[in-house]
């Protein structure tokens, strides 16, 4: 019995010392503050939460020149768009602030194509307005800016892409 009591006292002392040493190590390295996973929120790229944070894009391009080069390589821009002189630092800063202040609207609409007309002539159907989720907003870099802003899908952009729908009637819709 005495042996067990002595062993237990030794164990207590040993575990206490080991715990204290490990604690000091973690404290010095700063790990003690975030050893529990709930203390550091993880934002995934495809997360809706991420889409609501335009100020924190996943991998912003390193330089503006690089961005432009990439975009040209992908044939997404016409060269005329880049014909202007590069912006001054203040202008660039202003654009970044402006981009940061733009919060994505929660309601974005898209006009779906009406169903294919049947053989018999029928009355034209109204275009369907479909709600888009915030997470569906595409992020694309604004020209001459490192900040990512969500590309808003407006009526105009949609209607120019969809010639089937009369834009005047769509505005009235």
């Amino acid at each position: 019995m005495n042996t067990m009591l002595n062993i237990s006292l030794l164990l207590m002392a040993a575990m206490g010392t080991a715990g204290a040493i490990d604690f000091v190590k973690m404290f010095r390295s700063g790990e003690i503050e975030n050893i529990y996973t709930h203390e550091e929120p993880i934002i995934e790229q495809d997360d809706v939460l991420y889409a609501e944070m335009p100020d924190a894009p996943p991998a912003p391009p390193k330089t503006i020149i690089e961005t432009i080069k990439n975009r040209i390589a992908e044939n997404e821009f016409e060269l005329e768009k880049f014909s202007r002189a590069p912006l001054e630092f203040e202008e660039e800063l202003y654009l970044q602030e402006e981009a940061a202040s733009e919060v994505p609207e929660e309601v974005l609409t898209e006009v779906a194509l009406p169903p294919t007309p049947p053989a018999a002539p029928i009355a034209p159907t109204k275009p369907k307005v479909v709600k888009k989720e915030v997470s569906e907003i595409e992020f694309e870099p604004k020209i001459f800016s490192r900040a990512y802003i969500p590309r808003k899908v407006t009526y105009d952009t949609v209607f120019t892409e969809l010639p089937v729908v009369d834009s005047a009637s769509a505005w009235n819709y």
Binding site: M4, L5, I7, S8, L11, M12, A14, M15, G16, A18, G19, A20, D22, F23, M26, I32, I35
Partner: peptide, 18 residues
Amino acid sequence: VFVVLVLGAPTGFYMAFF
């Protein structure tokens, strides 16, 4: 008594630091 003195309390003591 054995479980507390030899197993439960010393391990709890170590884990208490974290």
